[in-house]
């Protein structure tokens, strides 16, 4: 106990010692200037500076790749023709294939319910109906009789010639060939009109009848 008291008094005595009489005074300012860079906040701010620098460098390094990817995304991809990826041609439907085609089952799920609601509807014996002729058959084919009949009705093409090329005249609805002009006028056309037409003819055409 006595030892503890002495120790405490000695401790207080020694703790109060802030310098020795003969020694040079402790330079607090110089020590503080040495301490300040080591302080936690300074370290934290320095760390932050390094983190920022690292982040900027990282962004600078990554940005070319990012821009490259973006330009790729904007530009359309080049068209690549791959024979293996080409779509299959549509199947050619012929009468043989139509005959081979299985009847398309049509499920009438609500048929029974409908029949219950309306007595007038005749219920088929089974729930499925078979459509034997698909609608595709309505499309005419080259060898179909429909095509043949239409080909027979189309008139053959004829050469279209202007009336002046031929040199004849039209009297009413009748075309008069030049060599028969006088004859036809004499037979069927009215005299006044025919004579006028004849008179209108150029002088190189003779008025004399050929026959």
């Amino acid at each position: 106990m006595e030892n503890e008291k002495r120790s405490n008094s000695l401790m207080d005595k020694m703790d109060g010692l802030s310098g020795l009489p003969g020694d040079a005074a402790f330079n607090r300012e110089a020590a503080w200037n040495r301490l300040q860079p080591r302080l936690p906040e300074q370290r934290a701010s320095r760390k932050m500076v390094w983190w920022w620098a690292a982040a900027v460098i990282l962004i600078l390094c990554i940005s070319p790749f990012l821009l490259k990817d973006r330009s790729r995304a904007v530009m359309p991809a080049p068209a690549l023709v791959n024979s293996t990826t080409l779509p299959k041609p549509a199947p050619v439907i012929t009468p043989d294939t139509i005959a081979q085609e299985k009847p398309v089952p049509v499920i009438l799920a609500k048929a029974k319910q409908v029949s219950k609601m309306t007595d007038a509807v005749v219920i088929p014996p089974s729930d499925t109906l078979a459509i034997t002729q698909p609608l595709v058959a309505a499309v005419p084919r080259q060898d179909s009789p429909l095509i043949q009949s239409t080909a027979a009705t189309i008139p053959p093409k004829k050469r279209v010639v202007h009336i002046n090329e031929v040199g004849g005249d039209v009297i009413g609805n009748t075309y008069i060939y030049p060599e028969h002009k006088q004859f036809k006028v004499a037979i069927s056309g009215p005299a006044g009109f025919a004579s006028q037409i004849v008179a209108d003819k150029p002088s190189n055409t003779s008025n004399l009848p050929k026959n």
Partner: peptide
């Protein structure tokens, strides 16, 4: 800084009591 000014002198003497070399003691105090 105020806390340093208040305590540093006495703390330096504590360090010097354990470590004889003055420079080492000052470094340890910092």
């Amino acid at each position: 800084k105020w806390l340093f000014d208040e305590l540093s002198g006495r703390m330096l003497m504590v360090c010097r009591r354990y470590v004889r070399n003055e420079q080492d003691a000052e470094e340890l105090m910092l």
